[in-house]
């Protein structure tokens, strides 16, 4: 058997283990998908009436509160979807860290199996969970009035982009889960990933931000990703954001993968 088919077979086995975990421990899955849905409802129903499609910019002219609420719903969806992906990634960091504290991973390390399969099992499991979460969030959004203009091709491109983002953030979370000494740390460090969408164009247009924040928001990876997603779903201008988004994802994926692999292969000197 070649190394690659071996790795694929072992990763498949590990994925099976991961999926069983999700079924056995559904409270975590529910929490991870519940959070973005709650935020969605909060933003749309609490802030939405006042915000429109971003204060002072696209929401020009006086409109009814419910009209601007729908406008803001459309504006905020890409950000919420990204938070959903980030939230699922946070779950990965927790489950990787939990795994590392259990003896079972020490057992895997002493077995003649493809080493990386322990991690790829987590990653593929997280991708599946993340895509299901995104689907659920979008469903809720449609139920409360979200009407995307995307064509089939644009939907596919959006799904591809989200897979890329999810892949990048998941590998990053795997590394964060590995580097954390405790499960608590692992559940806290990826919080940053949850907060980053707030400091982007996801919830308010960046030019409403104070200058330092605006600078940060314009150059951080979530902004081009969110703008690309917005363009695909709602037909706004994408411009150079598409290339930037893909480049960010590829860069983060590669760096995080190498980091995670190194962390996993180091001597477990605990």
């Amino acid at each position: 058997m070649t190394t690659l088919t071996r790795a694929a077979r072992d990763s498949g086995t590990m994925l099976g283990r991961q999926l069983r975990h999700m079924l056995r421990y559904p409270s975590m899955t529910l929490m991870l998908v519940g959070m973005p849905i709650i935020l969605l409802l909060l933003f749309v129903y609490v802030f939405g009436g006042a915000m429109g499609a971003g204060p002072g910019t696209m929401g020009a002219g006086p409109g009814t509160a419910s009209g601007s609420r729908t406008e803001y719903l459309h504006y905020v969806i890409p950000g919420i979807v990204l938070m959903t992906v980030a939230s699922a990634a946070q779950g990965t960091a927790i489950s990787v860290a939990m795994d590392m504290t259990e003896g079972i991973v020490a057992r895997f390390r002493t077995m003649d199996i493809a080493r990386v399969s322990v991690l790829t099992g987590h990653v593929v499991g997280a991708l599946i969970q993340s895509m299901l979460s995104v689907a659920l969030v979008l469903l809720v959004a449609v139920l409360i009035g979200f009407r995307p203009t995307a064509t089939l091709g644009e939907w596919l491109a959006a799904a591809g982009l989200l897979l890329l983002v999810s892949f990048a953030l998941t590998w990053l979370s795997v590394a964060l889960g590995l580097v954390a000494d405790t499960v608590e740390t692992a559940s806290n460090t990826p919080m940053g990933l949850m907060l980053l969408p707030f400091l982007s164009s996801g919830f308010v247009p960046t030019d409403t931000l104070p200058v330092v924040l605006r600078w940060f928001a314009e150059y951080q990876p979530f902004t081009p990703i969110i703008e690309t997603l917005r363009g695909l779903l709602l037909g706004t201008e994408i411009g150079g954001n598409g290339v930037l988004a893909v480049a960010w994802c590829a860069g983060i994926s590669l760096a995080a993968y190498l980091w995670a692999k190194r962390l996993y292969n180091r001597d477990p000197a605990r």
């Binding site: 283990r17 421990y25 003896g103 020490a106 057992r107 002493t110």
Partner: peptide, 21 residues
């Protein structure tokens, strides 16, 4: 190391079972 791993089995002091399975 892989040839070694194929020949051995380890049962540690802290049990290496998957509690959720």
């Amino acid at each position: 190391p892989d040839r070694v791993r194929a020949a051995i089995g380890v049962t540690g002091q802290y049990s290496a079972v998957d509690g959720l399975l």
